[in-house]
């Protein structure tokens, strides 16, 4: 068991009060597992990813634990987390295009970063070059400034840099969002390759693109309003989703090979609830076609079959 998250609660402090971006999230991640984390904007996916590596200034760890390789991550303690970052937990951020210092040569920046973490650049140089070549770059990029690379190249440099110390857990946060479709495909395949080659043990791929994550993930978790509503093997989520929200999400995807003609793709009516004051009971019920009275109570988490968990009254 690589990662075990239990009842994680992370709030954003705002002037109006705490926004409960993560409100009791529990899941576990096995060695070598790639889990896709999907959901609408504002459902807490990125917050979950960030919580496991670095809370930003407005985020506050309210409760719950995350245990990585048998060792609890000190989520709320920025200083104590530092020792774990990059070596054990690492991230490929949303903003790979601007993640590198624009006024430093890439090689020099990596060297300085390694040295600041008490590592020797010379020791890692060969491995670094090998991995750069693996993603189709040459040693020459180390001598370039970030501005001299294309967006896709920068993304690949960041992917190599983030995984250089072979972390246990890698969070890939919307890594494909800024790329064109061919590059998306390449990046997704690279992530799988990194896992297969043992550069990372397990991976959380945060995305709103279900069709992409379906191709690479072993498991998919669907988040809604700060909670995980359904978790199942990727195949199951797509083929036989149980939660009405998951169904709606999948219903909104176009399918290759189908003619839609005048038919419109289904969108999900309404908006996700505001998390400053989340509704009680099932949070999806305002938009749910199946909602009934019992949904006003907190839905149970039902295990439909091994590895398939749904938080819904109507799951059975």
């Amino acid at each position: 068991m690589t990662l075990e998250v239990a009842d994680l609660q992370v709030h954003y402090r705002t002037l109006k009060g705490d926004v409960r971006a993560l409100d009791g999230v529990s899941f576990s991640l096995a060695d070598g597992e790639i889990v896709g984390l999907a959901g609408e904007s504002g459902c807490g996916k990125t917050t979950l990813g960030k919580s496991l590596i670095r809370l930003d200034g407005r985020m506050r760890h309210v409760g719950g634990t995350a245990v990585l390789d048998g060792d609890e991550l000190p989520i709320g303690d920025d200083k104590a987390m530092n020792a774990r970052r990059w070596k054990e937990v690492s991230i490929i951020p949303q903003y790979s295009m601007s993640a590198l210092n624009p006024t430093r040569k890439i090689g020099k920046m990596i060297a300085e970063l390694l040295r600041a973490r008490g590592k020797s650049y010379r020791e890692f140089k060969d491995e670094l070059v090998r991995r750069l070549e693996l993603v189709g770059l040459t040693e020459k990029v180390l001598d370039n400034y970030p501005i001299e690379l294309s967006g896709g190249m920068k993304q690949r440099v960041v992917m190599v840099l983030s995984t250089l110390l072979d972390p246990s857990l890698l969070i890939a946060d919307e890594v494909t969002s800024a790329l064109d479709v061919t590059n998306q495909r390449a990046v997704a395949e690279t992530l799988v390759r990194f896992r297969d080659m043992g550069f990372v043990k397990s991976m959380i791929v945060v995305t709103h693109d279900l069709s992409l994550v379906y191709q690479i993930a072993d498991t998919i978790m669907v988040m809604y309003a700060g909670r995980i509503v359904e978790k199942a093997p990727a195949e199951t989520i797509i083929k036989s989703p149980k939660h009405p929200y998951t169904r709606a999400l999948i219903g909104a995807l176009p399918e290759v090979g189908l003619e839609y003609g005048d038919e419109r793709l289904q969108s999900i009516p309404g908006k996700p609830p505001h998390l400053l004051n989340p509704p009680t009971g099932c949070r999806f019920r305002a938009r749910c076609p199946l909602a009934s009275e019992e949904c006003e109570a907190e839905p149970p988490t039902v295990t439909v079959e091994a590895g398939h968990e749904v938080s819904c009254w109507k799951a059975n």
């Binding site: 970052r85 690492s90 951020p93 210092n101 300085e112 970063l113 973490r117």
Partner: peptide, 25 residues
């Protein structure tokens, strides 16, 4: 607050390095 500072911090870079870069830029 810029992206590269955030990324460095996410990789556990000590404040010293982040500030040095920020100052220089």
């Amino acid at each position: 607050e810029s992206d590269y500072s955030n990324y460095l911090q996410a990789l556990g870079a000590p404040n010293r390095l982040v500030r040095r870069y920020a100052f220089r830029n």
